[in-house]
Structure formats: structure tokens, C-alpha cells
């Protein structure tokens, strides 16, 4: 799951990025509104955390341009002024949710998870695929009721497949979703994570589509 974080304050941005990375999100962080639009045009994100007061281009403008281009990306707006008009303006400009600074990091993550769940069209907070259960809130994965221990990246790859059950994901798509800018992906790291997932959750969990990429296997009961 890859998040675009747009926050001009260095200390706050750094903190949010660290927090989101702890929750196994890949985070791209930009500090200017115009750069945010450029990043959104060039990359696929699952959600965006957007501060409103930004240099370059303010958050509302970014939001309006994003929506005008038809991008339905879930956007959570951060405002420092907890005033009603700011919230209303943010939501009316196309935000899906807002939070007022200062906020709880855990609440930010919970709201992001809710946004991601809604955008993927899933009703239940717990994702089920056959006998596999994934709880995004606790980041726990069970197979037939037994808890399976996954690394952060393995969890991220599994979540990516579970939230795109019909899609064939190419290796570069998976890498883009796994890594933020500057985090070097090794030449075959995606294969390594898929290998680990097959070992822990059964070989049929992810199916290789030769020459095209991978997709989620048929659910097993």
C-alpha cells in the first residue's frame, strides 16, 4: 500500500512518514503542492495525506485539480485550523476525510485503513480469502485460524493482492506499491517475498501468469 504524504513541515512530515512506515505503508513524501500534483500524475497511490497550507500550490488547489482530472484517490486532509469553514471547504473540494492538528497517529492510520477499505469496495474490516484472514487494523494474518507471522514487506505484498483480487500485478507494479522513492528494490526482491508467502500460506496463494506477472490464487477452503 503506497501513500503520498504532502506536508511542508519537516518535523511533522518526517514523523508521519515514520509512523506510516511502521504500519507497513510505503510512503512518498513531498513538501510542495506543485510537486504533489506531479507525483500524483506519475505514480499510482492507494491514498493521499494532504496538508492544506502548502508552498507552491495550496492543498485545496491540489485537491481540486486532482478531482478535476477524474482521479478518485482517497484523500485525507490535515488542517491546522480546526475551524468549520476549513473542514467544509476541504470536504467540498473533494477530500474524503479530514483531521485537525495535533492528532493521534493511530487515529490517522485507522482513518487511512477505513478510506482504503471503502475505496476497495470491501465492507468488512477483516479481509477473507478462503481460509486466509487479514486484519488491517492489527496487521495480523491467520490461516485456518492459525496466526501466521509475516514481515512488513510480505504483509504489504499480501495486502496488495487481497485488495486487488481480480488484477494481474506486474513485478514493477508490485515494486512501485512496495517501495517509496529512494528505497532501492533489489533485482528479485518481489520474487523473494512471493516465495516466502507461498511457503507460509500455501503454494496456491499467488499464481504466476507467465510473462505478465502475478495474481491472487483461487480461495481454498
Amino acid at each position: 500500500m503506497k501513500i503520498l504524504l504532502v506536508e511542508d513541515d519537516e518535523l511533522l512530515g518526517d514523523g508521519i512518514r515514520a509512523g506510516l512506515m511502521l504500519a507497513s505503508f510505503a510512503v512518498d513524501w513531498v513538501r510542495r503542492g506543485d510537486l504533489a500534483l506531479a507525483a500524483l500524475a506519475d505514480h499510482d497511490y492507494h491514498a493521499c495525506v494532504l496538508d492544506l497550507g502548502l508552498p507552491g500550490k495550496d492543498g485545496i488547489t491540489v485537491l481540486q485539480q486532482l478531482r478535476r482530472s477524474g482521479n478518485p484517490l482517497p484523500v485525507l486532509v490535515l488542517t491546522a485550523r480546526g475551524q468549520r469553514e476549513d473542514k467544509v471547504r476541504g470536504l467540498d473540494s473533494g477530500a474524503d476525510d479530514y483531521m485537525t492538528k495535533p492528532f493521534e497517529l493511530e487515529e490517522l492510520m485507522a482513518r487511512l485503513r477505513a478510506l482504503l477499505r471503502r475505496s476497495s469496495g470491501m465492507a468488512s474490516p477483516v479481509i477473507r480469502h478462503g481460509d486466509i484472514e487479514l486484519d488491517p487494523a492489527s496487521r495480523r494474518v491467520r490461516r485456518a485460524g492459525e496466526e501466521v507471522s509475516l514481515s512488513g514487506r510480505e504483509y504489504a505484498v499480501l495486502l496488495d493482492f487481497l485488495t486487488h483480487p481480480q488484477h494481474i500485478r506486474s513485478r514493477s507494479q508490485l515494486e512501485d506499491s512496495l517501495y517509496a522513492w529512494g528505497e532501492g528494490a533489489g533485482s528479485n526482491t518481489v520474487e523473494v517475498y512471493i516465495h516466502h508467502l507461498r511457503k507460509k500460506l500455501g503454494p496456491g496463494i499467488i499464481v504466476t501468469q507467465r510473462g505478465r506477472g502475478y495474481r491472487l490464487g483461487e480461495p481454498r477452503t
Binding site: D9, L11, L12, D14, G15, I16, G19, A80, K101, P102, F103, E104, L105
Partner: peptide, 8 residues
């Protein structure tokens, strides 16, 4: 903003 940053 600095308070939010400190908290985070």
C-alpha cells in the same frame, strides 16, 4: 504545527 509534529 510544531505541537502536532512533537506528538507524532
Amino acid at each position: 504545527t510544531p505541537l502536532a509534529a512533537l506528538k507524532v
